[in-house]
Simulated assay, not measured.
Amino acid sequence: MPDYTHPLDEARQFIYKSKTGRKPLNELLWFAMMLANFLFILLFYRLFGKTGLYIWIPIAAIIANIQVLKLVDLFGVNATLGNIVYASSFLVTDILSENYGKKSATRAVVVGFLSLIVSMCLFQAALWFQPSPDDWANESLKNIFGLMPRIVLASLLAFGMSQSHDVWAYNFWKKKWPADRFIWIRNNASTMISQLIDSIVFTLVAFAGTLPLNVLLQIFLSTYILKWIVALLDTPFIYLAVMMNRKGLIPEEI
């Protein structure tokens, strides 16, 4: 009987090859996901205005807290998967700071903070229910959401501290250099320091004592560097958001 390999198995083998000779599909997917996040933010902004940006904040916060549980090999190092969608929330608060001011950006931080608390409570409540004998998903949910309290505590601290700094720093640099040609400076100067704060706080609170020190350091460095790349590459998109707003392409607040 001929040896038959299902195409799906071949795809899995292609994606999950060992580091020696592994094709760079993870890296390609990472850049594709980053571009998709940026485009989704602009789509939400174009369709729903400022409200769309507020909607994106809890989406990013909740998805990031689930994706962060998955470790992947990126550029030869261990990294958490949720760094793109989480880092995209800094682009959102920077757009709000630029187009609507500090008060609007601060409101988005509060929305994100509350969404983390609510999602943790509801996810934990789901685990309290006794599963049916026919249930097949409860163990998987326990594996994911069982870690949520510590992950969410880390996210709450990291999100609150880093985003508050980001809003403050963006407006600080905007007062120093208010011209449009300096948007890239205030966007990157505020975000990159905020990302450092976020990476330190989250890595220590979420993973300290559960992972070997070398893995912990690798996760911290890779997470920060990847978020730094996201912050650098989101710069054209904040310019696009500013241009869309000034050309009257953004609807009034819904």
Rank of each mutant, 00 (worst) to 15 (best):
M1A: 04
P2H: 12
D3K: 13
Y4G: 05
H6T: 14
L8W: 13
D9C: 09
K19H: 10
K19S: 10
K23W: 09
L25W: 06
E27A: 01
W30D: 01
W30M: 07
M34T: 04
A36F: 07
L42G: 08
F48N: 00
F48C: 03
T51E: 07
I57Y: 14
I62F: 02
I63V: 15
I66K: 08
V68P: 03
L69M: 12
K70V: 12
L71I: 15
L71N: 04
G76N: 03
V77F: 05
N78H: 02
A79F: 01
L81G: 08
N83T: 14
I84F: 06
V85M: 00
S89A: 04
V92D: 01
T93H: 12
D94N: 15
Y100E: 11
K103W: 07
S104P: 14
S104A: 13
A105W: 04
R107S: 08
V110L: 11
V111A: 13
G112V: 06
G112R: 00
L114Y: 09
L122G: 08
L122H: 02
L127K: 04
W128D: 06
D134T: 10
D135Q: 02
D135T: 03
A137N: 13
A137Y: 14
L141G: 03
K142W: 00
I144S: 12
G146R: 13
L147K: 14
R150E: 05
R150L: 13
I151K: 03
S155M: 11
L157W: 14
S162G: 05
H165K: 03
Y170A: 07
N171L: 05
W173D: 01
R181V: 07
I183S: 09
W184G: 10
R186G: 07
M192P: 15
D198V: 05
S199K: 00
F202D: 02
A208H: 08
G209E: 10
L213A: 09
V215P: 02
Q218K: 10
Q218E: 06
F220Y: 12
L221Q: 08
T223Y: 10
W228G: 07
I229S: 12
V230R: 00
L232A: 14
P236E: 14
I238T: 15
Y239F: 06
L240M: 14
A241S: 12
A241F: 10
M243D: 15
M243T: 00
K247W: 15
E252I: 10
